[in-house]
Every structure is written in structure tokens, then in C-alpha cells.
Design a protein around this nucleic acid. Structure first.
Lengths: 183, 183
DNA sequence: GTAACCATGTAACACGTTACATGATTGT
DNA sequence: ACAATCATGTAACGTGTTACATGGTTAC
């Protein structure tokens, strides 16, 4: 339901092709609303039918033709309306917690490995966030409001990943104990 | 893909009807793998066809008949196998962050209201978790391993909600500034 | 010659949500 | 009377994933 709004946000900043949006999603909006290129093409198609976006076809010599999308008046109205409409908090859906919930059914070492694996991924993501912070948000107060809003979303990622790491450490201690007591 | 495993975990602890499982999900596994009763009935049906679970029909006078499900040998094997298979970290999908990302398009007050609303919900959930902690996990080391594993999942909820609150406070400060500067 | 990039899509399937349907019992 | 609890489901729809398809250009 929110993909279309994410697309409207992206196109509000800058018009572009489905391809470009799909790429930008990998380092922007996609951090909190992931979408594949297939889904993006499809959704843009529907949105064009509903007159929320419009596109111009641009022929390129020796390259496939582009469809450059932009937001229509309708689209802008619908985005503003959505921004003022309450949204639900996202549901938690984490298979790792199912595993932990059933932890007594398998060797503690198996879960330890899994926690470590997740922890490595989490650490990588956190350090990526931090390097973005250093590069673009070193002195956030000096930035234009637009960027400061984006900084708030980055901070969400950073605090969430730090909290995850702290929790994982606690779980590790518990699992190590389990592994010892079992032997 | 994980619903069936969640159901196998639930039925491994205690056999029961779809109805009972659906209820238990509201205060157990459902915290990190929500599912409606429709979905649960449907999935149990498929799992019975695939011989992961089996059921006994029990007639009750003056009440609809029950289907009491239990895990089969196959089901147990498939659960153990899954528990040892790596799972992906869940993707973040949060419409509130889309809104924040586009925060410059609407009055800061609108976002402030939304943050406060989410914060109230978050606080409620956190306090529920804490009361569960007090009631059941006051002295976790004294508990059997099974319960300690469950406690780890509760701790996940608590640290996550606390981190969310801390972030929201930071965002509030920023939004209040925005609201002032705009006037 | 192999992969990555540019640029678009279709189709089948899996997963989840919402609405609808039945029907008795107990509580306010 | 109306809602809640017990107990089961079907059907339509919406969203998301995976696989497949095309075809030229640039980089190693």
C-alpha cells in the first residue's frame, strides 16, 4: 500500500525512470521500503493509468528507450493527503525469534552460529550507516531541512542496529552458558 | 514461509486446535510472527495434506466439533531441519520513515502528532512487555531452559521498544525546532 | 568470453488481508 | 437486543518474490 507513496516521494524530489528509481532505492528509500525493479515498473504502470504520474518517452540512439516519469497534480495531492493520514506501526516478523523461542529443541551451538552470522550482517549495516553519517551528516544543523529529515531516518537505522547488537550480546552470554551446561 | 514453522513450534509444545493456536499467538509467537485465524486454519490444512501434522476430530455436545492437531514424525524432522537452516534478517518496512523522509512537504506539526501517536502505542507495548517480565521472569536464572529462551525473545521486544522511544525523543526535538522556525 | 550496466517488461506463484458465512452459548 | 466466546471455514483481492525474456554497450 505504501510503495506508491514511496514512489511519489522519490519522483517529487526528482523525475526519473523506473530503472533510476530502482537503483536509488538501494541507497535511500529502500532502506525502509525495499522494492524490486519488477515491482516498481508494475506500480508505476498502474499509477500512470490512475493519473498519479505521467511519463515522457525518450528515444536514445543505440540504447533502449526511456520512460521518464513525473508526478502529476493528482499525484501530489494524493501524496500530501497520505502524509497527513495516520499509518500503522510495522508488525514485527522475525524468524530468528521463532528459532530462539524453540531454542531448547536444538543444540545451543547451532543458535550461537546463527546469532553470530546475524551479528556480522548487523555490524556491517551499522558501519555502513555510520560512514554515511560521517560523510553527509557530520554537522547536521548546518544542512537544509530536507537533509535533516533524511538524517532522522538514518538515526533510526543507527539506534535500531545498536539496540540489536546489545541484545545479541546478551543472548550470546545466555547461549554460551547453555552450551557449557549441556556438555 | 515461516508460519508453518511457528505452528510446528506451537504444536510441539502442546497439541491443540487451530482456534487455540490463534488465541495463543496473540500473547506468544504472534509477537514476532503474527497470523490471523484464517491463515492458521489454511496453513494447518496444507500441513495436514503434507503429513507434517495430523488431527483427531472430537465431537462435542452442543458445540462445533474440534480438530485437535499434533505434530507428526515428519513434521518434527522438518522443524528440526529448519531450525538448523540460516534465515534472513527481516527487512525493515516502515511507512513512518517514508513520511519523515518527505517531512519537508508537510507542516512539522502533522509529523509531531504522528510521532506522538506512535510513541503512545510504543509506550503501551513496552509497559506490557515489562509487566510480563515482572510477572514471569523476575528471577530468570531460576527458570527452566525453555522459559529462559522465551525470556530472550521478550528481551528483544524490550530493547527494541526502548531504542524506538529514544529515537522518537530525538526526532521530537528536531520537529519542535522545525515547527518554531516555520512560524 | 564473461560479467556488469542500461532499460524495459510478463507470468506464475506464494503469502497475507478483508470480507463473508454458519451456528450455538454466555454475559451485560 | 448486542457483543463476546467457541469453532470452523471459503473467496476475492492485494502485495511481493522468483523466474523468464530481450538486446545493445562497456569493462576486465
Amino acid at each position: 500500500m505504501s510503495l506508491r507513496h514511496a514512489l511519489l516521494v522519490s519522483l517529487s524530489r526528482k523525475q526519473g525512470t523506473g530503472y533510476e528509481i530502482a537503483n536509488e532505492f538501494d541507497r535511500g528509500l529502500g532502506y525502509f521500503w525495499p522494492a524490486s525493479h519488477q515491482q516498481i515498473y508494475q506500480e508505476l504502470g498502474k499509477m500512470a493509468v490512475e493519473r498519479l504520474v505521467a511519463f515522457t518517452r525518450r528515444q536514445q540512439p543505440d540504447k533502449p528507450p526511456k520512460k521518464i516519469y513525473r508526478v502529476t497534480g493528482n499525484g501530489r495531492k494524493s501524496l500530501i493527503a497520505w502524509l497527513a493520514t495516520p499509518v500503522d506501526m510495522p508488525a514485527v516478523k522475525d524468524p530468528l525469534l521463532i528459532k530462539l523461542f524453540a531454542g531448547d529443541l536444538i543444540p545451543a551451538q547451532t543458535l550461537l552460529d546463527e546469532i553470530d552470522r546475524h551479528n556480522a550482517i548487523n555490524a556491517e549495516i551499522l558501519s555502513r550507516y555510520r560512514s554515511i553519517e560521517k560523510q553527509y551528516f557530520d554537522n547536521p544543523d548546518a544542512l537544509p531541512a530536507t537533509s535533516q529529515f533524511i538524517y532522522m531516518t538514518l538515526l533510526r537505522g543507527i539506534t535500531a542496529r545498536k539496540a540489536w547488537r546489545a541484545w545479541a550480546l546478551r543472548v550470546r552470554r545466555f547461549l554460551e552458558n547453555q552450551a557449557h551446561n549441556a556438555s
